[in-house]
Simulated scan of single mutants.
Amino acid sequence: MRDIILSFLESFKQLSYLGIVLALSCEIIPAEVVLPLAGFWVYEGNMIFWIAVFSGVVGGTIGPLILYFIGRFGGRPFILKYGKYLFIGEKQIKNAEVFFQKYGGGVAFVGRFIPGMRTLIPVPCGIAKMNVWVFTLYTVLAMLPITVLYVWLGQRFGPRWEEAVPFARYFLLNNVLILIVIVLFTLGVKHVVKNLTTS
């Protein structure tokens, strides 16, 4: 499977930055593979760092938006019927829905930092008809640091770019709790301020 994905990505390399956008837009190939590999291409001198980052953010936003609109206009029955083609099962959808109900719209941001959740979270956001502009903003704000980190690590590791994947995943998992606390604190403050102004 690994070799198939890598050969697939090598064909995308021929499209340069557009290849990064397309690879991330399909949401089937993990960003943890695409972005460090893009960093390796920067290391080789085939790409410019910040243009690769920009391409990663664009592709990493288009992919979730596609899933968001599938959830919004197709609904849960559509996802349950056709989600298998995107490697999305009923159990995964339920987990994402519980996560969304627990943390609200902020999951569009926080969920991007959690492996296994980042691909799924746009679906319940779409089903719940979350404001598309807010969803897009959260996604962009989350994708920017993720993309910078992965591309930078891929560039630093060079030919050993695959070693960047567990390193970045460890870094993100250790910081995601901090992000969740910050988001929940912000939402809590907004709720308190809203109650004070309306009382």
Results as ranks from 00 to 15, higher is better:
76 R>S: 13
30 P>I: 08
116 G>W: 01
127 I>G: 00
64 P>L: 15
105 G>L: 08
16 S>A: 13
80 L>P: 01
194 K>P: 06
111 G>C: 05
150 Y>Q: 11
182 I>T: 11
135 F>K: 06
29 I>L: 09
126 G>W: 02
49 F>P: 06
41 W>V: 10
140 V>P: 00
55 S>L: 11
6 L>H: 08
150 Y>D: 10
45 G>Q: 05
35 L>Y: 04
132 V>K: 11
73 F>M: 09
32 E>F: 13
154 G>E: 06
39 G>T: 03
36 P>E: 08
162 E>R: 03
194 K>C: 10
121 I>L: 02
136 T>A: 12
115 P>S: 10
75 G>P: 06
150 Y>K: 01
6 L>T: 03
42 V>Y: 00
13 K>H: 14
169 R>G: 15
164 A>E: 07
105 G>V: 13
155 Q>D: 12
130 M>G: 01
182 I>H: 01
26 C>K: 11
199 S>D: 11
111 G>N: 03
31 A>P: 10
104 G>R: 02
17 Y>M: 07
178 I>V: 12
96 A>H: 02
81 K>D: 12
132 V>F: 12
86 L>S: 09
13 K>M: 13
60 G>T: 10
8 F>E: 12
18 L>R: 11
181 V>G: 05
60 G>P: 05
191 H>R: 15
75 G>R: 10
193 V>S: 08
112 R>Y: 11
41 W>M: 06
100 F>D: 02
180 I>P: 04
138 Y>Q: 07
182 I>K: 04
76 R>E: 13
46 N>Y: 10
148 V>P: 00
148 V>R: 01
145 P>V: 00
73 F>V: 06
30 P>E: 09
96 A>P: 00
138 Y>D: 03
73 F>W: 05
128 A>E: 00
81 K>H: 10
93 I>Q: 08
21 V>I: 15
166 P>N: 07
174 N>T: 13
164 A>T: 04
44 E>Y: 09
153 L>C: 04
164 A>R: 06
113 F>K: 04
109 F>A: 03
102 K>G: 01
20 I>D: 01
138 Y>A: 07
74 G>M: 01
138 Y>F: 10
102 K>P: 02
120 L>I: 06
74 G>C: 01
81 K>M: 11
122 P>S: 11
123 V>C: 11
92 Q>R: 11
85 Y>V: 05
178 I>T: 13
70 I>H: 07
48 I>G: 13
197 T>W: 15
110 V>E: 05
54 F>A: 15
56 G>S: 13
179 L>M: 08
26 C>S: 15
164 A>K: 08
